[in-house]
Design a protein around this nucleic acid. Structure first.
Length: 491
RNA sequence: CGGGGUGUAGUACAGUUGGCAGUAUGCCUGCUUUGGGAGCAGGAGGCCGCAGGUUCGAGUCCUGCCACCCCGACCA
């Protein structure tokens, strides 16, 4: 037993770390808070990128790339923005090293001090809007719909593999519009894109909502989000989309001439998802045997393991498998045939279970005689013997079924973890004993939200977009409330 | 930044009263094996986190430092 996993029920954090490390998704690095994303983890990210990028293109966006470094003065232009990010910025102050005259290796050359410090981007609104100023003159230049795939740095006090690291990978869309309504529509459209991606591809049910003022992005008028729930009952913000109003246009003096020949400030949005999605995916679906990946996100969907005693048997199986593999590949299924003889079947079974590969086929001498394979599905851990004849169609159907099954399981869990409460005692009791989302009335003030946060560590995750209005009384103050909001402890 | 923990072989760990650096696993070789993490035999692998100190002698005792992990405060 080389790779024992911690059980979820024993230590959820350790279980998660074990999956990430032992599943080969990522590794710790020499730099605190920064991680190495290993090939298997990066392959998941590439799948996410490919699907999302296609969705962005379909909605009219183009990719571009803006600098990693942002002049300090840029960040400071928008007051709320700098206030939100100031405490987590990495700052470049010098541009050269030199040999230590005292012989202690290399030191920063004191003569190479930058006139103006550069900030390693925590997000790119400022550098991008500075560029947009030169690009936008007329309503004919709008809308400007741009996305970039990039890394960003936020100097976090406490980090967690994939979910919160000092450097992370993401995409950030930055759009410019002639009207407020169009910008809001854009922010909502991209939220819908994220929700569709999460549900249809990651098998992750999410709640679309709008953030309260406390939780709003620094510099936004409104922040929309998709909120997911993972197995320990904590919420995770899986994606955000911001309506930025004219805040950045005003800060960077980006104006355009409208159809009425009047000068006006441009309306903006920004939106992003990050490698945090990988962590969310892991926490949402996996079990004590390892990762469980929904077929649409699995870098390898089907793994085939031969079971042989002799080289002759292996040759026969190789022939059968090569035919099967070609058929599966031609239908768009990713297949790995592991006929490596350095590991035994039992080892491979455990390893591929750990890695969350949806379908495992085993073919041995018995199957050769009977024209069958043993098929094991990762989501249910069940095995069956199925005929080789027509296997491709069985697999195609099964992958779809598994995708749906994983989604439905997560959905049932999530729905069972939304609890309506009507008193603060009940609120605290449910939060401690059950977790999940708590649907409760709130008086709408940041003060009350803060008090609840300080007392319970729960925050308002969002006001669901499809919320129904319902008169009631704030669970904390008893003041009148027009609707319930969702509270939870969150990652 | 506070609290806790861990630093010894690739990995996970043990190391007694201060006295030759160990176990498992993994790795290499060979044979036997192969339907749930194989067996036997042989072999390689160490700056015991770093720096000082005490001592005839330090993985072990003392002082200082560093790194990483976990829990909090902060956050996508």
């Amino acid at each position: 037993m080389s790779k024992e996993l911690t059980n979820r029920s024993d230590d959820y954090s350790q279980w998660y770390n074990d999956l990430v490390i032992k599943g080969g998704l990522a590794d710790y690095s020499a730099v605190r808070g920064c991680m190495v994303i290993k090939p298997y983890g990066y392959a998941i990210w590439e799948k996410m990128q490919f699907v999302l990028d296609s969705m962005f293109k379909e909605t009219g966006h183009q990719n571009a790339y803006f600098p990693l470094f942002i002049p300090k003065s840029f960040l400071a232009r928008e007051a709320a923005h700098i206030e939100g990010f100031a405490k987590e910025c990495a700052v470049v102050t010098h541009y050269r090293l030199m040999n230590d005259p005292n012989g202690n290796g290399v030191i920063v050359d004191p003569d190479a001090k930058l006139e103006e410090e550069l900030i390693v981007r925590p997000t790119s609104e400022t550098i991008i809007w500075n560029a947009y100023k030169g690009w936008i003159k007329s309503y004919r230049d709008l809308p400007l719909l741009i996305n970039q795939w990039a890394n960003v740095v936020r100097w976090e006090m406490r980090t967690r593999l994939f979910l919160r690291t000092t450097e992370f990978l993401w995409q950030e869309g930055h759009t410019a519009h002639a009207t407020k309504d169009e910008a809001i529509a854009e922010a909502r459209t991209m939220l819908d894109v994220y929700a569709a991606f999460a549900e249809n591809w990651m098998a992750l049910p999410v709640i679309k909502g709008v953030k309260t003022a406390n939780e709003r992005f620094a510099g936004a008028e409104d922040t929309y989000c998709i909120e997911a729930l993972v197995q320990d009952g904590k919420a995770i913000q899986a994606g955000t989309s911001h309506f930025l109003g004219q805040n950045f246009a005003k800060a960077f003096d980006v104006t355009f001439t409208n159809k009425e020949n009047q000068l006006d400030y441009v309306w903006a949005t920004s939106w992003g998802v990050s490698t945090r999605l990988i962590g969310t995916l892991i926490m949402a679906h996996s079990d004590d045997h390892g990762l469980v990946l929904p077929p649409k996100m699995a870098p390898i969907q089907v793994v085939i393991v031969p079971i042989v005693k002799t080289a002759e048997q292996l040759t026969l199986i190789d022939e059968k498998v090569n035919v099967l593999r070609k058929e599966l590949i031609s239908k768009g299924i990713t297949v790995k045939y592991d006929n490596d003889d350095k590991q035994k079947p039992g080892w491979k079974f455990a390893e591929y279970e750990l890695k969350g590969i949806p379908i495992r086929l085993a073919i041995g001498p018995r199957d050769l005689e009977n024209g069958t394979v043993e098929l094991a599905r990762r989501d249910t851990l069940t095995k069956s013997t199925v005929p080789l004849q027509g296997l491709e169609d069985v697999i195609i159907g099964l992958l779809d079924e598994m995708q749906l099954n994983i989604y439905n399981k997560a959905l049932a869990f999530r729905d069972g973890m939304i609890t309506e409460v009507n008193s603060f005692d009940e609120f605290k009791k449910v939060l401690d004993e059950k977790g999940g989302f708590i649907s409760a009335h709130w008086d709408g003030t940041p003060e009350t939200e803060n008090i609840i946060k300080n007392e319970t560590k729960a925050t308002i995750r969002c006001i669901p977009l499809d919320n129904s209005l319902e008169a009631g009384n704030c669970v904390y103050t008893g003041n009148p409330s027009i609707q319930r909001v969702l509270f939870a402890r969150a990652y």
